[in-house]
Design a protein around this nucleic acid. Structure first.
Lengths: 247, 247
DNA sequence: TGAGGTGCTGAATATCCGTTCAGCCCCGAG
DNA sequence: CTCGGGGCTGAACGGATATTCAGCACCTCA
């Protein structure tokens, strides 16, 4: 009963990381990998269940069962439930960095990296969203790295003329990242309203196209009329209202 | 030891709702309100603590202590912890609708409503973000109402010429709402990177201005060069990549 | 063959937490 | 004054859960 991510490898799954790639816990781990090590199975099960039900919605026993192991074994390997949590954080961070390095080695266009990486590793992303709202040292670091990567990619895109420059590229990167993740964290409501979300099992193409079209509209055309806005702002007497219904 | 929201009423607090406004549980509740009822105190304490630590991070006992009551009293009033949760959901939804109706009665510009409402009711917003990611009937309904409201406001803004029309206003409203809430849900990282967040205690003005400037830049000027983008898209052979690093 | 070590488990433990119970205080009605 | 009831509490209960413990199976090396 070995648990395995996903089902079939479609064309879009180029970016999926191999879940069987073992992260060596102790340096001299005597290799015995006729099949996935229990430690690895536990981590994968935990990531899936945590991503689905949140950190507090899953018991150690449930994770162990899903991994085909016993609860004490989980403790044996990770010391405690918190230890498992940080192990998962580390594992996810490592996998994401692997995705990144592999995609640059493959010479992919940077503009595809993030999106395809998300699509191909839903479990990891779902976990990551939970982790981002919960916070934690490992995961904060990962977020920071995403900001840096985003800055690099955006700069490259600027040079091609694909992206317009910003007065404060770093701030723009952070805000864009936060906004993008917002749609993932609240995928529940995205599913309810748009009929799809990026992390659901089988996103139907038309819903995805609708979402992408909306994003493209938002990002290729202005939303506010800047002149009308500042005009209106000047017309109102003392109302200090720097922003609009966009929160 | 009566717990009370906030401290002093500044000019910006026009939109704050009166936390003492009692929601009548049983219809014929014999009124005895020399001070805030315990039921109300418990709800306020729960909203604060839930918003701060999440639904699973707080015990009934903690809530009771904060409200100056005992754990059994919480159960006595709400039946169970889940009952308290739905009572909080209902209360928050009611407060938000109150904010809305009061602001329209006051004749405020709709474009200010959302932003100022957020600023003035941080506890409610913090709770709401937790509730949005957790989901639930009451809270889903509230989200849907926010979408509808946003549609109305945006339509009005369109007529003034403040906002440009969209091919699919509803989709745009949903995506904008999700993106905006993303920044609130992940306020942790917004604080770490921008030095402020909309739900923190005392947002320093310069950080807020920086954030607003970033938002305005994003919403008044295009981010992508549409021509360059579609050109690039046509140039690439079979790469089906509908979107970019914006996730 | 035996010793030791590793991976793993079932049962037991300790703790926490939501909930129940029996009863107190206080106030208003008869 | 007495009765009754509502608001409220301390103590106890029961279930769930992370963690510990003692030991089993198996494998390796002497």
């Amino acid at each position: 009963m070995v648990y395995r991510y996903g089902a079939t490898r479609t064309g879009r799954d180029r970016f999926r990381v191999d879940s069987a790639h073992r992260e060596n816990g102790t340096s001299g781990a005597s290799g015995q990998e006729t099949q996935e090590s229990a430690r690895q199975r536990i981590i994968c099960a935990a990531i899936d269940l945590y991503g689905e039900h949140g950190f507090d919605g899953v018991t150690v026993k449930t994770i162990a069962q899903r991994a085909g192991a016993s609860a004490p074994l989980v403790i044996h390997h990770f010391g405690s439930k918190a230890g498992l949590r940080t192990a998962c954080d580390r594992y996810v961070a490592e996998q994401f960095s692997r995705v990144k390095t592999e995609s640059v080695r493959r010479g992919s266009m940077p503009r595809n990296v993030a999106h395809e990486a998300v699509m191909a590793n839903r479990h990891l992303v779902k976990y990551l969203m939970r982790a981002f709202v919960a916070g934690g040292p490992e995961v904060d670091l990962l977020f920071d790295q995403l900001v840096e990567d985003s800055l690099v990619y955006t700069a490259e895109a600027e040079e091609i003329g694909l992206v317009y420059p910003s007065r404060n590229p770093r701030h723009r990167a952070v805000v864009l990242l936060l906004q993008s993740f917002g749609g993932l964290v609240l995928h529940r409501h995205m599913e309810r309203h748009l009929g799809m979300s990026l992390v659901q099992e089988d996103p139907d193409p038309e819903g995805l196209d609708a979402y992408m079209a909306t994003l493209m509209e938002l990002y290729t055309r202005p939303l506010f009329n800047a002149e009308a806005y500042s005009e209106l702002l000047g017309a109102e007497q003392a109302e200090q209202a720097p922003e609009s219904s966009a929160l």
